[in-house]
């Protein structure tokens, strides 16, 4: 249990640290690390770490053993992993393409969708002052 708790903590810390970086690629990788910690937390919700028996109905028995793990969170985590895999792929490609096409890797400098206001404080006219 302690191991899982520590793993959640470490991956969350690393994820938040990377996400707060201004580098696009680090930020995107940080988010997938936060996703890992979310998955682990979900996994721990199913007593999977404290139970001693696998969630299998033994031969001759009519129900699961009392100390069996709950299989549902494992199934849920599996779903979440698949989804986060797709999102990670997409976001990595997105960050790379943005870096290649703009030459900017600093999130603060990347203001193509929201150009900063003109010197007189008015919103820019079609992206330029």
């Amino acid at each position: 249990m302690l191991v899982v708790a520590c793993a959640v903590g470490v991956s969350l810390t690393a994820g938040v640290y990377l996400t707060s970086s201004r580098d696009l690629l680090r930020c995107v990788i940080g988010i997938s690390l936060i996703g890992v910690s979310a998955n682990l937390a979900m996994f721990a919700a199913g007593r999977s770490t404290t139970a001693s028996a696998p969630p299998v109905v033994l031969e001759g028995a009519r129900q699961l053993p009392v100390d069996a793990a709950n299989p549902l969170p494992q199934a849920l985590v599996l779903t979440a992993i698949v989804i986060s895999f797709a999102l990670t792929c997409f976001s990595l490609v997105l960050a790379l393409v943005l870096q290649q096409r703009t030459g900017i890797s600093d999130a603060d400098a990347l203001r193509r969708s929201e150009p900063p206001p003109c010197p007189d404080g008015k919103p820019p006219l079609e992206g330029e002052c």
């Binding site: 930020c27 997105l94 960050a95 393409v97 096409r101 703009t102 969708s113």
Partner: peptide, 16 residues
Amino acid sequence: VRQLDATLKYFVLNTL
């Protein structure tokens, strides 16, 4: 490029 930039911002906050 502005659409990709927007996508990244949409992605980060919505994924969190």
